[in-house]
Design a binder for these strands. Structure first.
Lengths: 119, 119
DNA sequence: TTTCGTTATGTATGAAAAAATATAACGTGT
DNA sequence: ACACGTTATATTTTTTCATACATAACGAAA
């Protein structure tokens, strides 16, 4: 065994991955899930509710993301049928797909490293 | 190019990796650096100072780490030559080496993924 | 013109984390 | 006995951050 010290102790490996600009965070696992739920529900408020997050927080996150790219990731409409709604733009969907892949590879990396701990 | 959306925008990929138990964090990049500095200076207070961290915070971190393993990672002495001091145990050095390697591979992973963003 | 559910935005409250402050104990050497 | 620099620990203050609350605007449909 390589690691006598940590074996038998209930340790788990965890981590986070995110894309940031000089000032703000751009995209992490939380924002990714929010985008996915917006895509699923067609609404920021429903997405927020599904995540147990306040509408304001969700809106702030969307606003932050949209402000950091040339083409918004989420387009919104206030008023209209059903009161309004939100949807991912093509660019938004691209970003979701890209980061979902990155996240999957990261998960794989962590599992690999966790195995190494107990090897 | 794979990612037309994010290119030319000053985005960087960042991340964190840590080992945790059910209750507390055990080891991350900050604690690793603290251990390394304790090893270098032979003192918690000097290590804290070198990291721009309060002594109390450094002490708390050491206390947390030591409490989560069978054999302490850091051994301390209050009073004595030079007022006392601290040093890594053999196990402490093992943990440092182990996590430094993990951290290096993580860095490599992130660079690889960052390249993918701009490919 | 009223109702409805949503987006849009500001403000206030509360909780948690971090930092600052204070004090005691310890053991070696003077 | 005293000084010194360190570990050890409690308490208080400050800062940060998340949450809650409150309100307005929007646009379609009844």
């Amino acid at each position: 065994m390589k690691d006598l010290l940590l074996e038998n102790l209930a340790f788990t490996l965890n981590g986070r991955l995110w894309i940031e600009s000089t000032n703000d965070r751009f995209l992490g696992i939380g924002r990714l899930e929010l985008l996915e739920k917006i895509d699923a529900y067609g609404s920021i408020s429903k997405a927020a509710q599904a995540m147990g997050m306040s509408y304001k927080k969700a809106w702030d996150l969307v606003s932050s993301m949209n402000a950091q790219v040339r083409t918004p990731l989420v387009m919104t409409q206030a008023g209209g049928k059903k009161g309004g709604g939100a949807a991912l733009t093509v660019e938004g969907k691209q970003v979701v797909e890209m980061f979902r892949g990155m996240q999957a590879r990261f998960q794989q990396f962590m599992e690999q490293e966790a195995d190494l701990l107990k090897a």
